[in-house]
Every structure is written in structure tokens, then in C-alpha cells.
């Protein structure tokens, strides 16, 4: 993971082509959501030790945001999917 990412659009690419945005499990609250919900969205992180999902941006490639599911201890990557596809999948 720390060396290579398999981009669903571009194939196996080196880490330095990507910028990492952070936790991809967060869902942006509705405008009317509570202050606490907004605080948690912007400031609180589960920060798991183990399996996590993270947004990686293929800045020097297809410029798509990807959801990388990986392990924060072993750095093993379980899956990489396009972020938009992931959101649509979650909505379905």
C-alpha cells in the first residue's frame, strides 16, 4: 500500500501519484443535522487500528477520488474503488 496502489481506472501506480485526504467512512450530515453531528463529521475520527477506509486522490493520474480499504498495521490493501461509485453503492 505504501508503495503501490491499484487504481481502478489506471492500474497499478506508485504511491507518490496520490494525495491522501483521510477517513472515507464519514458521511456529510444534512444541513439541518445537529451541532454534534457536524462536529463529529468534521473533527472526530474512528482512527481504527486495523481495517480502515481512506480517500486517496489520484492527482497525478485520473484525478479520481478512490476509496482505499486497507489495514493500518500491515498496510495490506483489501480493495480500491472509485469514490463516486462507492457513494452510489452506499445509497442503493
Amino acid at each position: 500500500m505504501a508503495s503501490l496502489i491499484t487504481c481502478p481506472h489506471c492500474g497499478v501506480r506508485p504511491k507518490e501519484e496520490f494525495a491522501i485526504r483521510g477517513d472515507a467512512s464519514l458521511v456529510r450530515p444534512a444541513p439541518s443535522a445537529s451541532d454534534e453531528a457536524w462536529h463529529d463529521y468534521v473533527y472526530v475520527r474512528a482512527n481504527p487500528r486495523g481495517r480502515t477506509v481512506e480517500h486517496w486522490h489520484h492527482v497525478a493520474g485520473c484525478r479520481r477520488f478512490l476509496v482505499v480499504e486497507r489495514d493500518t498495521v500491515t498496510h495490506e490493501v483489501y480493495s480500491v474503488v472509485d469514490a463516486a461509485a462507492a457513494v452510489r453503492g452506499a445509497e442503493r
Partner: peptide
Amino acid sequence: YSSYAQRGNLA
């Protein structure tokens, strides 16, 4: 990237 591994990457 978020990590609990005490090791870094080459890049």
C-alpha cells in the same frame, strides 16, 4: 496515510 506501523515508505 493513517497508520499504526512504525515504519515508513521509500517514496
